[in-house]
Design a protein around this nucleic acid. Sequence first.
DNA 1: ATCAGTTACGTTAGCGCTAACGTTTGATTA
DNA 2: TAATCAAACGTTAGCGCTAACGTAACTGAT
Lengths: 339, 339
Amino acid sequence: MVTLKDIAEKAGVSSMTVSRVMNGNTKDVSAKTTERIKKIADEMGYIPNSSARVLASRSSRLIAALLSDYGEGGTPLEDSYSSCFLGELTRQIQKEGYDLMLHYVKDYTDINYSLKSWKVAGAVFIGMFDENIRKIQKDNSIPLIFTDSYSTVRSIINVGIDDYQGGELAAGYLLEKGHKNLAFIGPAVLGNGVIMHRLQGFCSFLREKGVSVPPEHIVDFGSDDMAGLLKRLCFSENPVTGIFATSDVCASWIYAAAYRLGIRIPEDLSVIGFDDIGMSRYMIPPLTTIRQDIRRKAKIASELLMKNIRNPDSPMENIVMSVELVERESVCGLGTGHF
Amino acid sequence: MVTLKDIAEKAGVSSMTVSRVMNGNTKDVSAKTTERIKKIADEMGYIPNSSARVLASRSSRLIAALLSDYGEGGTPLEDSYSSCFLGELTRQIQKEGYDLMLHYVKDYTDINYSLKSWKVAGAVFIGMFDENIRKIQKDNSIPLIFTDSYSTVRSIINVGIDDYQGGELAAGYLLEKGHKNLAFIGPAVLGNGVIMHRLQGFCSFLREKGVSVPPEHIVDFGSDDMAGLLKRLCFSENPVTGIFATSDVCASWIYAAAYRLGIRIPEDLSVIGFDDIGMSRYMIPPLTTIRQDIRRKAKIASELLMKNIRNPDSPMENIVMSVELVERESVCGLGTGHF
DNA sequence: ATCAGTTACGTTAGCGCTAACGTTTGATTA
DNA sequence: TAATCAAACGTTAGCGCTAACGTAACTGAT
């Protein structure tokens, strides 16, 4: 293993000089020496020992990415949403010369360990939130970035999207197409703030236009018996003609159930999704959905992180990215179907 | 920050004794002292400094997960395949008390850095292979686990699936259903060994049964102009009636293109996929596919890793998991369609 | 009572690096 | 010409931990 000392001996300088060169602290080293040391280090295949660096400098170039381990409604990284975010985040922070550690955490103890044991310079909470956040913030004076968090705790750096606006967009579009009998379906309606806000945006827009969504049309639902649910909603006296799904994945469940029941999309039933994941454009028919730019979200998260690492006194920010409607073919004008 | 020394002072022992307790090296410490130290450490909220540990012990409890950064045909972590693997791998190694670092690497230098700078105890190459593997192995005497690697280099620990068998299964099933005019479609036919072996299994099974696949029916293809391709294959004198897609995602592209062209699946065209990702069962019609157990693959990778970390003299292993056909509704008997 | 063997600790040194403070040399200025 | 200063290095100490080797006290066998 090649160490600073090895290089120093070969170059006939002290290891401190080599250290300076390796850290780009070149103002205290002459140009000639800098070049010579760089060459020798290269020849010897020197790779800095990160642990020693952390220990000596009391700071690391490490970021922790935290995922919830009590996964409500499917574990993170299984859907293309959080994994795409993670991938882009990793790439971005690597560009900045940082490394990323991945941690599944289930409680305060886990989080604490993740942050402390490796002396990370910052952390990104991916789609999770912990109530002990204040304590965590106090214990670790490092920037913590949250994604899609609707916490009552202020003084948090968060990057999320305008879920409310997404709900409004969906409502507006369905209304525009003549749909008045609507439903809101998806897992974890009550789970976290994200879905809540989509629902609120959806309902309040409708209410303003004089349309109401009866409680039995707001369904917290997994993929289990989607056919049963659809049957109840569509084969009734006053059938639902438009559904706002809480995610594109959920929309695909609806597609499958509708197919089984002989309900045609969009002729009999219009469906609008959320996220615009890769497969949405290949669904049949291509899914109309509320698009969020997940890569941009990751990029912003990374930028916020770096900014706060470099200047710990940066003000708290709550970034709200806007979403857009992607019009495809899963919603059509009312009056073309069976019902 | 609480250190061993702090605990030692409070307990009236040396820091070495505390170190022993913290590492479960309890045979050199009395039961009473062990309990007392544990209690104090707990009260003080002690969390070991991993960097100091690595530095002093010259070994870490860290695993590197490496992903290729020159992503041919889509970057890793964007498809549910590699991200699901990564998630399960992380969980498994955490269970063993290890942590995971995620690295996008593009060349030998990157790989070298990832392995050396943090002194990782082992590494998993996710869906990638580097030609400098021998050098890497020699430089770092740590276990390296590969996934789905068909290298000519022996003496490598690999965990993969029987792609050849998968091809055979697909061929056998399509043949059984009466299809003789077949095609093989997907990205990176020439890219890496995985797809090659699926193709070989597919073709050689067919050849044995006296069926041949003409070269123009073996198409290295992305999602760009799938409709054009399908038109060429299906609207000909002797139309293709069965397609083996190299992945489920690719199958979904075929679904979309077929829909656009008015080709019905499975009546006019049978499609069989590969992987059995989450969405396959929700495609319309539900996709018949070759299933590989991605979580089991991750579990085996983790087990192999741990085994080789604990005993570096373990023999090299090349695990080949078998695959199975999942019969759903995208393949039907010949003679029901237009063509 | 003596000695080997065990139990339960402590001491020392150093992992590779860097923060903080020297030191030397030559150039510049009063 | 002495004082001043910056440039270009070196020295020292220590980050928190552990490997490797002590060592004292106690045990039981002879």
